[in-house]
Computed example of a mutant assay.
Amino acid sequence: MPTAAIKICGISTGDALEAAIRARAAYIGLVFFAKSPRAVSPAEAARLSERVAGRIGRVGLFVDADDALLGDAVGAAKLDALQLHGSETPERAAQLRARFGIPVWKALSVATAADVARADAYAGAADLILFDAKTPKGALPGGMGLSFDWSLVANWKGPLAWGLAGGLEPGNVAEAIRLTGALLVDTSSGVESAPGVKDEARIAAFCAAVRSAS
């Protein structure tokens, strides 16, 4: 099994960024959603992006964002991909993909097989589907440390590339990869010591666990 690509989401400090690079993650996630404890402004994201220097991919996370915020963030942070974490339709995903000319990842909240089946509608509109856990009504759309029944996406053979998120941490990510065959894994709260506070040792342990699963 090839080694899964790793995304460390919710990076908001230089130390966390450097920890992700040292641990050989493929991507960092920059959260442009003001209600999140991991949120960064376009200006803060720009300062972090200046330190990247081609060493890691930059994915911007958005929740039903308007074009003005998206444009500001893409320009400031030199994003390599957009991750849509709200109720964005396939039409909206396709529109943003065409406008900004970078890959679009669509996160889908999963609790049932019907939720997984929604991914098919994004064929040709998004570049990657990220299957995430469904959070309680009124809660933030991600970063809650919740997982879902991984058997729902075990070796999913849909029309798009896909990744796995939701409750992944150093102690369970290897099992998650073995059960699902995911080729990308995404963590945020699973490598934190407190909400929004990344733990460098947990980032290193998570990345090592991913590599142990291949």
Rank of each mutant, 00 (worst) to 15 (best):
residue 154 A to V: 10
residue 158 G to T: 13
residue 156 W to M: 07
residue 140 L to S: 12
residue 138 G to D: 03
residue 135 T to P: 09
residue 131 F to S: 03
residue 147 S to A: 07
residue 134 K to A: 15
residue 135 T to K: 10
residue 151 S to K: 02
residue 128 L to N: 03
residue 153 V to I: 12
residue 139 A to R: 11
residue 144 M to R: 14
residue 158 G to C: 14
residue 128 L to R: 14
residue 132 D to M: 04
residue 143 G to A: 02
residue 149 D to K: 10
residue 137 K to V: 11
residue 140 L to P: 11
residue 147 S to E: 01
residue 149 D to R: 11
residue 139 A to S: 15
residue 150 W to C: 01
residue 140 L to C: 08
residue 141 P to R: 06
residue 149 D to V: 01
residue 138 G to M: 05
residue 141 P to C: 05
residue 152 L to D: 03
residue 139 A to W: 12
residue 154 A to Q: 09
residue 143 G to C: 02
residue 141 P to S: 05
residue 142 G to H: 03
residue 130 L to K: 05
residue 148 F to R: 03
residue 153 V to A: 06
residue 127 D to C: 01
residue 127 D to P: 00
residue 152 L to C: 01
residue 131 F to V: 05
residue 130 L to R: 07
residue 148 F to E: 08
residue 133 A to W: 13
residue 135 T to S: 15
residue 142 G to K: 04
residue 138 G to S: 03
residue 148 F to V: 01
residue 157 K to T: 14
residue 130 L to G: 05
residue 158 G to K: 14
residue 157 K to I: 09
residue 155 N to I: 07
residue 131 F to D: 07
residue 153 V to F: 09
residue 131 F to P: 05
residue 159 P to A: 15
residue 158 G to N: 14
residue 147 S to G: 15
residue 142 G to A: 12
residue 128 L to E: 05
residue 141 P to T: 05
residue 138 G to K: 02
residue 132 D to Q: 04
residue 135 T to Q: 15
residue 135 T to Y: 11
residue 155 N to F: 15
residue 154 A to Y: 09
residue 125 A to C: 14
residue 127 D to W: 00
residue 150 W to T: 01
residue 150 W to V: 02
residue 138 G to P: 00
residue 129 I to T: 02
residue 139 A to V: 06
residue 132 D to V: 03
residue 133 A to Q: 12
residue 126 A to L: 11
residue 148 F to W: 07
residue 152 L to I: 00
residue 134 K to W: 09
residue 153 V to S: 06
residue 134 K to Y: 06
residue 140 L to K: 12
residue 137 K to Y: 06
residue 125 A to F: 01
residue 126 A to G: 07
residue 148 F to Y: 10
residue 129 I to H: 01
residue 144 M to T: 09
residue 142 G to E: 00
residue 154 A to L: 12
residue 147 S to H: 04
residue 144 M to G: 00
residue 149 D to E: 14
residue 126 A to Y: 04
residue 141 P to Y: 06
residue 126 A to I: 08
residue 127 D to M: 03
residue 132 D to W: 08
residue 156 W to L: 15
residue 136 P to Q: 11
residue 145 G to Q: 08
residue 151 S to R: 04
residue 134 K to I: 10
residue 140 L to M: 13
residue 149 D to S: 09
residue 151 S to I: 00
residue 127 D to K: 00
residue 146 L to M: 11
residue 159 P to I: 05
residue 133 A to L: 10
residue 152 L to Y: 02
residue 140 L to D: 14
residue 130 L to V: 11
residue 128 L to M: 10
residue 151 S to V: 01
residue 129 I to R: 02
residue 145 G to H: 09
residue 157 K to R: 15
residue 129 I to A: 05
residue 128 L to G: 02
residue 134 K to F: 11
residue 152 L to V: 00
residue 142 G to Y: 10
residue 151 S to L: 00
residue 134 K to L: 15
residue 154 A to N: 10
residue 126 A to W: 07
residue 158 G to L: 13
residue 138 G to I: 04
